[in-house]
Each structure stands twice: as C-alpha cells, then as structure tokens.
Simulated assay, not measured.
Amino acid sequence: MKIDLFHAYTEKGYTLIEILVVVSLLSILLLIAVPQLKQENVFEEVEGFFTTLEKDLYNAQMKAITDGAAVFFIFDPIDHSYTIRQGLTTIEKRQFPIGLELRGTSLGYSNLRFLASGNIRQSGTFTFLYEEHLFRLVFVFMRGRFYIEGL
C-alpha cells in the first residue's frame, strides 16, 4: 500500500496557527478601539445634558410668560441636579451626568428665575466642569437671553 504524501497535504483550508494569528490581531484592534468609543459616548451624554438644559430654560421662560408667574431654577451641586419650580409645584427635576460638576456661579444656586415678562431677575453665569473641560452658562443682562459656551 502506497501513501501519496503530496496529495495528503494539499487539502484547502486554514491551519490552526493562521486562525490564532487572525483572532489575536482582531482582539488587539478591539482593545484599542472600544475605550475610544466609550469616551465619545460619555462626552455625547454631557452634550445631550446641555441641550436638555437649554430646552428646559426656554420652556421655563415660556411657562413664566404664559402663566404670568415666576419660574425658578434651583441648582443643587451636592445632589448634582437642578429643579424647575413654579411656586410650590415642581415642574421638572434632572440629574447631571456622572462626572459633571457645578463649579461656581455668580447668581447663587437658587437665584435664577424667569419673571412673568420672560426676563430674568439678574444676569450672571454658572460654570460646569467635566474632566478637564469647562462649560459656562451665561445669562445676558436682564433680558432672559442666555447661551452655553465651552471654554
């Protein structure tokens, strides 16, 4: 009985070593890519928070004008949240994203209010810190206008 050694090793397919090399290369690429994607998602959450804050400010201003009564924004740096109130009624309470801190304010934490005219009682700023990024919420003098800037 004669064994043909040439044809015994010509079957098509991949060896175990080739598969292990490919799998190890893919796992190295995933180890590099996944932390980058997580960091971008977290920063998108902070941007989403500021978008929501901006919408809440506009809605509070419109509610003050529509109802003819002041609407208060109360920031709580310890609870990492803000509450929107009209009189004794809580309209909304929202939490800050994890890692976002309210670092300072020239208005005080509970002095932001929209009057029945839609104006604010006084101008000022709120400063937020996320990792090494600073954000400032600025209220322009007495008109109820505001903007959020990244520093």
Rank of each mutant, 00 (worst) to 15 (best):
Q36R: 14
E54A: 13
E47Q: 13
G104R: 14
E18Y: 07
L88K: 12
A70E: 05
A60Q: 01
F43V: 12
S110Q: 14
L100C: 01
T51N: 11
G48N: 08
K55Y: 07
I91M: 03
L26Q: 09
I98D: 09
E40F: 14
T105F: 10
T90S: 02
A69N: 06
I91H: 00
G108Y: 05
L115E: 10
L102S: 03
E40W: 14
I32D: 05
R94K: 11
L30C: 14
V71C: 03
Y109I: 07
S110I: 12
E11G: 15
I32V: 13
Y109Q: 11
S27H: 11
N59Y: 09
D56V: 00
T90K: 02
S106T: 09
Q86F: 05
A8H: 15
N41W: 15
H80L: 15
T66E: 10
E101V: 13
E47H: 09
Q95G: 06
K38I: 13
I28R: 08
Q61W: 01
A60P: 00
Y58R: 11
E11S: 14
F6H: 15
L25P: 06
Q61G: 01
L100E: 01
F73D: 01
V46W: 05
M1D: 13
F75Y: 10
I84C: 01
L100S: 01
T51D: 12
A70C: 02
I74Q: 12
Q95T: 10
G99T: 03
Q86P: 03
F49Y: 04
E11Y: 15
Y9R: 15
K55I: 07
A33G: 06
Q39T: 08
F73L: 07
T89L: 11
I65S: 02
S27F: 13
F50Q: 04
L20N: 09
L26V: 13
L53I: 04
G87V: 09
L31K: 11
L115G: 02
T83H: 00
D79F: 11
A60M: 03
T15V: 11
V22A: 15
I65A: 01
Q61D: 01
S27D: 08
T105S: 12
P97Q: 03
Y82A: 02
F50A: 03
I91Q: 00
